[in-house]
């Protein structure tokens, strides 16, 4: 999620290349450790004393201080003129590891808001023009004594009404849609496959397609292929018995 600025990425890349070049030249030496040999020797010598690390180091330090008044070197410097002592070496990988991969992001304004604005404008225009041209149905006032033939539910329930012709109402009207909705809600808990790549999900994709097609076909049959008495008809032969 973290976004690493480009200039820092470039700088890190440059540093990595430089380090790679240096280690390539240093690799000619016998050891591939980055700690200089004389420092390793010194720490070995310090550890070598039987009297225990701290005392040995203290002794060594005082010895060093006592024994090095050579020309041009400040008092207190170690062998070879070093004024510092290596305490420990922390390899770079252990403290600089960045766990978050950089994510390619853009500003919401204008990149997303412009798209949303155009989409909503286009949709409004579509609904507006469509509503101008096509009127919503308004039939005769409700009359309990006149049952229209056929009587159809709204289109999104016509799949269920179609099922009613095949099964007992409890199965068609309650059990099957209930199971369908439950299966839909359970999908993320049933589908254990973590990938979202289409090529890894052929099974779930085909299951969902069958599920959607099942309802789509039922709705289309219920909408266009059912006439008076909810009997099967062909729309091109008997006309369409369908209102939105």
């Amino acid at each position: 999620m973290t976004e690493i600025p480009e200039h820092l990425l470039k700088r890190a890349q440059a540093a990595r290349e430089k380090a790679a070049g240096e280690s390539a030249s240093a690799d000619a030496g016998p050891s591939d450790s980055r700690i200089p040999d004389h420092l390793l020797e010194r720490s070995k010598a310090a550890r070598g004393g039987d009297a225990g690390g701290a005392v040995a180091v203290a002794d060594k330090a005082s010895a060093v201080v006592a024994s090095t008044p050579s020309a041009g070197v400040p008092v207190g410097a170690g062998p070879g003129g070093h004024t510092q002592r290596l305490l420990t070496v922390v390899k770079s990988g252990s403290i600089q590891e960045s766990k978050a991969a950089p994510v390619d992001k853009v500003h919401t304004w204008p990149h997303l808001l412009a798209v949303e604005f155009v989409a909503s404008l286009a949709l409004t225009a579509f609904i507006f023009v469509f509503s101008w041209v096509v009127n919503a149905p308004l039939m005769h006032a409700a009359d309990f004594n006149k049952t229209p033939n056929p009587s159809k539910a709204p289109w999104y329930f016509l799949g269920l009404q179609e099922l009613l012709t095949m099964f007992h109402p409890m199965i068609a009207g309650v059990t099957l849609p209930g199971v369908g909705v439950l299966a839909l809600m359970m999908a993320p808990y049933v589908d254990r496959n973590p990938s979202n790549k289409p090529e890894d999900r052929k099974f779930m994709t085909s299951m969902m397609t069958m599920f959607l097609m099942f309802w789509a076909v039922l709705v289309i049959i219920g909408s266009f292929f059912r006439g008076p008495g909810f009997n099967f008809t062909f729309p091109w032969r008997d006309g369409i018995f369908f209102e939105l």
Binding site: H140, A141, A142, F144, K146, P148, A153, F157, Q161
Partner: peptide, 12 residues
């Protein structure tokens, strides 16, 4: 509250 509404809801 027209015929379409009444009978669609009756079915539903």
């Amino acid at each position: 509250w027209d015929q379409l509404a009444l009978w669609a809801v009756t079915v539903g």
